[in-house]
Design a protein around this nucleic acid. Structure first.
Length: 262
DNA sequence: ATGGCAGTACTATACTGA
């Protein structure tokens, strides 16, 4: 089975890119989208249905939004923290639509769009850290119910210096501070492993490049989109690849797909 | 050191992203 993750930076603007990519990659069973940027009633279902895909969405106006595009029907779709955790102490953590989960075969897939954090020390940065702390509780609950859990998406954290084209000064940069890394580490310590690094030990591989200053042409990127797998799934995985082709096209998303084969 | 690019909502420019 192949599961892909892709922050498309607006599913409506990127609809042609996404559908062409699904046609070029017919063996991808499930595509996890982030930053759909559309309310549910305006989601472009038709192009996906025409490709024989099922759509499961969780969106909001202008910002955030996640979706699952699947070749076959999925089961147990749940959106937001509270669907798993019940009432949460800080309801603001469910106001932004960033989290959807479903079962594909024996794998519980979690598709997420972690908050960016804006600037170190800002209100948004604190929100990101609180969001990640609640994510730990959420995943703990899912792990109690499922043997195999795969979490993927835009994590907005480069987990190691090797995942940044130029890590100089990263201690004070959002997406790369020690606090963000440690907070995410605490989540992953529940038993998740970065499957990309099972197959690739070298640097220079990224999933996001700034639109500005020719970031992609100069390969000045960051690896912030991941699949983290529980142990048995990690062992089963046979490949994990970043597909840079969509990033080369005109009017691309600033992120490109990452695909794991299990 | 700074700004640079892009999408949305709106209809000029602010907000957000990373």
């Amino acid at each position: 089975m192949k599961i892909a993750t892709w922050n498309v930076n607006s599913v409506r603007t990127r609809i042609t890119h996404v559908c062409e990519w699904l046609q070029t990659n017919p063996d991808v069973d499930l595509l996890c989208l982030q930053e759909t940027k559309v309310i549910d009633s305006d989601f472009p279902h038709a192009p996906f249905l025409e490709l024989g895909c099922q759509t499961y969405i969780y969106g909001q106006k202008s910002y955030n939004g996640v979706a699952l595009i699947s070749r076959s029907p999925l089961e147990n779709i749940q959106t937001g923290f509270s669907a798993i955790l019940g009432e949460i102490a800080d309801p603001s953590l469910d106001e932004q639509k960033r989290l959807i989960t479903a079962k594909l075969g024996d794998v519980q897939v979690v598709n997420m769009y972690v908050p960016n954090g804006s600037e170190v020390g800002s209100e948004k940065y604190e929100y990101k850290l609180r969001w990640l702390k609640l994510l730990r509780e959420y995943l703990q609950a899912l792990l109690a119910q499922n043997a195999h859990v795969l979490i993927c998406g835009d994590f907005n954290v480069a987990i190691a210096d090797i995942d940044i084209y130029d890590p100089k000064g990263r201690e004070n940069k959002v997406m790369a501070t020690d606090i963000e890394r440690e907070t995410l580490d605490t989540v992953l310590s529940l038993g998740f492993k970065d499957v990309f690094r099972k197959f690739e030990k070298d640097g220079g591989y990224y999933s996001w490049w700034d639109y500005r200053s020719g970031g992609f042409a100069r390969n000045r990127g960051w690896r912030i989109d991941y699949h983290f797998l529980t142990e048995a799934l990690y062992d089963r995985a046979t490949a994990c690849a970043i597909d840079v082709e969509p990033r080369k096209q005109t009017q691309p998303s600033d992120h490109t797909p990452v695909i794991v084969t299990i």
